[in-house]
Computed example of a mutant assay.
Amino acid sequence: MKKSILILSIFLTSIPTFAQTDQTGTEHGSLMFWNNLSLLCGKSFEGEMVNASEKDQFYGKKLVMHVRTCEDGKITIPFHVGDDHSRTWVLTLEEGNMIKLKHDHRHEDGSEDRITQYGGMSSNTGMAKVQFFPADQETTDLIPYAATNVWWITLDEKSFSYNLRRINNDTAINVKFDLSKEVETPPTPWGW
């Protein structure tokens, strides 16, 4: 009986739980989001387009995210689209409690794409389960039509979603990943 209790205790303490506070005990939404995302480090998950149509660039392709690195203040998440390993979402913790999202695009030889490093900074500390990233000035200078882009990421115990909406436009991308089932880790993304 004691052996069974010990095994159960070890098992329960090995199950990851979503963080409720940051290291100082302050409940900043951005830091809870960051800590919860870090719990997924090293894991890969398959996703699907939400409300996809045949016009969508990802339609009919295998979509896999891999929370590849969780260094101090930086999380990289390659987004694999079929055999295309050119995309990596790069999240950095800025000013202690704000999160910046950048899109790193590479060619197969590892060189940077002409359109890369666009994204934005969270406009506030957000919530533990959602972070919003309006397009920054670098994005506006690089891709003028993307000046009204708003990206957001949702995260809970069951799913991670990556979303894009362009204000005053019907363009929308929504990819939802099932966190309940890990998949095989894809190849190293191009340029990394």
Rank of each mutant, 00 (worst) to 15 (best):
K2E: 14
I5C: 03
I5M: 04
S9L: 08
L12M: 08
T13M: 15
S14F: 06
P16I: 11
Q20F: 10
T21F: 13
T24K: 09
G25A: 04
T26P: 07
E27Q: 14
G29R: 00
L31T: 03
F33H: 03
L37I: 11
S38W: 00
S44V: 02
N51G: 06
S53V: 13
E54N: 12
K55I: 12
Q57P: 15
F58D: 12
Y59W: 11
L63T: 08
E71Q: 15
E71C: 13
G73I: 02
I75H: 00
T76W: 01
F79H: 04
D83A: 13
D84N: 11
S86V: 02
W89A: 00
V90K: 06
L91E: 00
T92N: 03
K102A: 09
H103G: 04
H105Y: 09
H105M: 14
R106T: 10
R106N: 07
E108W: 07
D109M: 05
G110S: 10
R114G: 14
R114H: 14
I115A: 10
Y118R: 09
M121S: 08
S123H: 13
T125L: 04
Q131W: 05
F132V: 15
F133E: 02
F133Q: 00
D136G: 07
E138V: 10
T140A: 15
D141M: 11
D141L: 12
L142T: 15
L142A: 14
I143T: 05
P144Q: 08
A146D: 03
A147M: 13
A147I: 07
W151N: 09
W151D: 11
L155C: 04
E157I: 08
K158P: 05
F160P: 00
F160T: 02
S161R: 03
L164V: 04
I173R: 08
N174F: 02
K176R: 14
K176N: 12
K176Y: 12
S180V: 06
S180K: 10
E182A: 10
E184K: 14
E184A: 15
T185Y: 09
T185C: 11
P186W: 06
P187G: 11
G191Q: 01
